[in-house]
Amino acid sequence: MKIMVCVKRVPATDSRIKIAADGTSLDTTSIEWIVSPYDEFALEQALQIKDADADTEVVIVSLAPAAATKELRTCLAMGADSAIHIKDDQANTRDAFTTASALADAIRDAGADLILCGKMAVDHDQGQVGTLLAYKLDLPCVTEVRDLKIDGNEVIAERAGGGGTKETYAVPLPAVLTVTKGDKEPRYANLKGIMKAKKKPIEELEAAAGADHMTVKVMELPPERPAGRIVGEGVDAVSEVMRLLREEAKVL
């Protein structure tokens, strides 16, 4: 069983975001990078399958700038067996279609029984790559999977449906799943894992020189939130708060 997990390097969620001088991208000079959290959920699912069945091979695939290997090594330190690094210095601004194409090419060449992605990367929050990847590979896709297990030639995937329902799908392999937060907390990469990761292989591929299909025209920071207001204290304030919620915030 070979599981491919697609991961993306994104700015740490507590980074102070600044827009670059070009007005269309992030200023990345003082940004700390991390593995996108949903991708970590996906990796944890794969690693738990591997924990239960040692014959499982977990391969990381990532479109990332040439110098960005820390996040790949972190995935290897968590327990993945190897990684494919598709080198692209513009990885972080690539549109979803181009990204999915690059990943699909690498996955097609390497072969995989199951492909997992996070439900979205927490930089642009678009959530397109997983489904586009399934389309490119001509494979079935289940999105926002909370939990999954392998059952013979099928993957059993659980997701939240509308209205609080729980949907459980049986999907023939190979398949693409996009993963969201479930009950399986991603593990920490421990020291032994970090030591082992130093010796695990990272295959390097050059990204095909495809142009983006879309360009970002403008990127803007959200407007500053107005300062909070104290309208009074204790029970005396309740009626004023209710009035404001009704009339100003219009949430009641």
């Binding site: 110098a67 290997t69 820390k70 090594r73 920490y188 990469a189 421990n190 970090i194 990761a197």
Partner: peptide, 17 residues
């Protein structure tokens, strides 16, 4: 670069923990 990467991994983990 290798030393810096290893350090960053350990730092990230400790900070996450």
């Amino acid at each position: 670069a290798d030393d810096a990467e290893l350090l960053a991994m350990v730092q990230d983990n400790v900070a996450k923990f």
